[in-house]
Nucleic acid binder design. Structure first.
Lengths: 213, 213
DNA sequence: ACCTGAACACCGTTCAAGT
DNA sequence: ACCTGAACACCGTTCAAGT
């Protein structure tokens, strides 16, 4: 007998993301999601194949939030910057989702769409084929890597750790072996993430401009 | 009564990494590790505080495998390339560990040592303070991001998927919306990872050279 | 100090039965 | 077609008892 679905896929997706945002990866379970929706755990399996599919749904939800405008009249450099920044911001808006975004292979339209937009902008630098691929991979890596560095890099802030405490932690390292690291720890704490990402991107864009048109 | 430990920390670390390499993340459990060592699950807790600590042990094991030589007479560009490549290769040698490396914050000496070596090389470009931090974060992001892209990027090969099958999958996308992605999919499959990483790094190094000395 | 089994509070998922 | 509870095979970890 054709029974109408109790939930929409969008409802599931939004609830899963909300759960993740609120309680972190450990809080996103089939059972917790079901409870949040007011049903039993097994009901979730009417909408996703398994836990992995649920995680992909969340990745899609985050990446889909990346918004950019197509600007064919702008310089390709500005358009690449615009799209890369949009993606970085979307990822950054959901810190608890970053782990999933970094490690789960998503084939969702949202991911393909940012990829295509980036490729189109980069193609305007005069690249095609292997050179275009390399340029794309470089920008993608920088965006993903910037999110990674903030989450888990050597200079990432520990969750709930104060700035003075972080500086102190680095000062406690052997100064003869980690001189630069200790020196830079202060700058890392004073650094504004948005501005820093912009500068990192600038470095790569300068390299891309040198090789392009 | 002072009882001598049955295992060394190195033994635990090596066995954990071997288990991960052989069976993937799902295969690395406290119980499986204990069984592999021929003991009960709870024995592991005499060596690590919890599962998270075990994962950090594995991350450390992988990063510690990065080997580079200090070359103060070489151009800073070559030294940066050398260290970045060493780290990328170490990460790449353990595909099943990449997820942990990307998402777990490690404060192990191994991580601090690559970071310091990279910083020292980059400092020779004439940078210090915020500019040095930005240069470091850019290189780090590129290395981490390259590993990410290979694991989970839009052009990553699906585990066990053949090259023709991958191309077919991209050809099945709407060609009007994903023209560049479809075009580039072929290049992505023919691309040699080592060579591609080198080219990506070149782009960033060109940008770094333009801003440095 | 280190070892370890029993037990607890969770998971994801299979199965079978419902509408 | 979709819903759902019971049950199974796992987890990480606490506790208490051992040497």
């Amino acid at each position: 007998m054709g029974r109408p679905p109790r939930f929409t896929p969008q409802q599931l997706q939004a609830t899963a993301l909300a759960l993740l945002d609120a309680h972190g990866p450990a809080g996103l379970t089939m059972r917790a999601l079901a409870a949040e929706l007011g049903t039993g755990a097994m009901t979730i399996y009417n909408y996703v194949a398994d836990r992995e599919a649920l995680e992909l749904l969340v990745v899609e939800a985050v990446v889909a939030q990346a918004q950019w405008r197509h600007a064919p009249q702008a310089h390709w450099r500005d358009e690449v910057r615009h799209i890369a920044t949009a993606m970085w911001q979307a990822v950054r808006a959901h810190p608890h989702a970053i782990g999933f975004i970094l490690t789960r292979r998503s084939r969702s339209p949202a991911v393909f769409e940012v990829a295509e937009a980036l490729l189109a902008a980069l193609a305007r630098s005069g690249r095609s084929g292997q050179a275009l691929l390399v340029a794309f991979r470089a920008v993608w890596a920088l965006v993903a890597g910037a999110a990674q560095a903030e989450l888990a890099g050597p200079l990432a802030l520990q969750a709930g750790e104060s700035a003075p405490r972080t500086i102190e932690r680095f000062r406690a390292l052997p100064p003869d072996r980690f001189a630069h690291l200790i020196e830079i720890a202060g700058a890392a704490l004073g650094s504004d993430a948005e501005n820093e990402f912009s500068q990192i991107l600038d470095l790569l864009l300068a390299g891309l401009a040198a090789g392009g048109r």
